[in-house]
Amino acid sequence: MLKRLSRGLRTVFAVAALTVAAYATAAEWRGDHPDTYVVKRGDTLWDISARFLKKPWLWPEIWQANPQIKNPHLIYPGDVISLAYLDRLAVQPGPRQAAPINAIPLDQIEAFLKDLRVVDEFEQLPYVVSLEEDRLRGSQGQVVYVRGLAGAQPGQRYLIVRPTQRYTQTRRTSNGQYLPFKEDLDFRGKRLLTQTADLDTGWTNMVLSEGPLELLGYELARVNLGTVTRGEVGNVEASTVLLDEAGREVRIGDRLIPVDAHGYDLQFFPHAPKTQLPIGKAQVLAVADTDRYGGPRDVIAISAGARDGVDNGTVFSIWRNGSNVIDKVEYGEDRSYQSVPKKSRVQLPDEFAGHVMVFRTFDKMSYGLVMEGIKPAKVGYTLKHPDATY
């Protein structure tokens, strides 16, 4: 009797769960969705979901709940997606000559998957001390001389990388928010100037870094690939490395790391953050290939990583930090910003800018692709839950 009752209760709970799931799914549909959609070459899962769902990052939960779809990533151009039956998705296979579509366009993040990594330190790595014929730059077919490869044997291969950025984060004691720092590095990997984003005014300034800052990591960019042709023999104090790739030119100060199976994800399941981060903890550290601003399909560096519960596929909303302004009605138009105490200024609300999905995660920071936006994303903007309303 107890077993029958248990089975009965499980059935009731299962039916109730499916009913709730179906209602939740229906609530997320856009009202104008068609009965079917034919997947096209160039589509991504995010793009398709954005056409029919109010929250495109919810597609994994919805699609995986349907037994017709064994793997939501194995959807191909030509497949017909049914959107009519009980507001659920069912895929009718089409021609399968092309590769399956992904959540995001891999070609736009390939360089960040293959050629960039973030490490806690690099000063201990072997480095290029000079080049063939005392050149300033070296390219494919030329040799460079490396210090710190004692014991290296001919035939060993190394990636040649360049420290490009130093990312740090500190806490502002005045308001408890975080202020990100991005520092360019010189050829030795030493710090130059620091780019900061002022959370009060929204302006970006160049300042020399001072005070204790938490290190988030050093960005290492792949430059070339080399093969050891001669180690340190006799009175020679540098190993000889032949440059193998027609990539970027190598210079003095570039570092070497062993070639390894550097794995990274190629499939991504968008989802909300698994843990609630303190407001201000996750911010835009940098925008790739630009000074301060980025838009859809731009890559940004984020000041949160695996230690904060961020993983590949995590979706954040991007917010412009609300300005802290002078009430000119009360103080007049001639008062300077600094002359009015902060407690007497007016704090304005944050402004929504767009959404970003993380595709590469390190311990203390990560890289994300801006998926869509209504205004540019900027260095210093705050990242929140994708469903945040303020």
Rank of each mutant, 00 (worst) to 15 (best):
L125F: 14
R230N: 06
V340T: 07
W59T: 00
Y367I: 11
K190N: 10
A150W: 03
L136A: 14
D244E: 15
E245Y: 03
D200N: 11
I101E: 00
A50Q: 10
P349Q: 08
P386L: 06
G231R: 03
L199S: 09
R117K: 13
V250N: 03
A246H: 05
V325Y: 02
Y37M: 07
A304F: 04
S139K: 04
P93S: 07
D260L: 12
R255I: 06
V161L: 13
F122G: 01
E245G: 00
L285V: 06
V329I: 10
V38M: 10
D35T: 10
V146W: 01
G189A: 12
D291V: 12
T196D: 02
I160T: 01
G202L: 04
D198K: 08
R171F: 10
A98R: 05
P273M: 03
R222A: 10
L199Q: 09
A377P: 06
Y331W: 14
S339N: 09
K281I: 05
V236Q: 15
S344V: 00
Y178H: 13
R51Q: 11
V161S: 04
E333G: 00
S49V: 07
P258R: 07
E132I: 06
G217W: 11
H73T: 04
Y127V: 02
L192T: 15
R251K: 15
D387K: 05
R307N: 13
G148R: 10
P100L: 08
H355R: 14
R171I: 12
P163W: 02
A304L: 05
H355S: 07
N66C: 10
W59M: 14
G31T: 09
G280L: 05
G94A: 07
Q153K: 15
L208V: 11
I104D: 01
P341D: 12
A17T: 11
V346Q: 09
D198N: 15
D43H: 12
P296W: 00
T194N: 05
G8W: 12
P154D: 09
R147T: 09
G247C: 07
V228R: 03
L83V: 09
T44D: 06
W46L: 07
L89K: 00
L53G: 04
T36I: 13
E214Y: 05
I257Y: 00
A98D: 15
S239N: 02
D184I: 03
P341G: 05
V118M: 15
R30L: 14
T170E: 09
P163S: 05
I48H: 05
P212H: 10
V12H: 08
P296G: 04
T314G: 12
G373D: 08
A111Y: 02
L348K: 10
D350S: 13
D107N: 15
G309H: 04
D327M: 10
V379E: 02
G42M: 09
W63H: 03
N321S: 06
L208K: 13
G78Q: 02
R191N: 11
T170D: 12
P56W: 01
V38G: 00
S139V: 14
Q267N: 13
L199Y: 10
V146A: 07
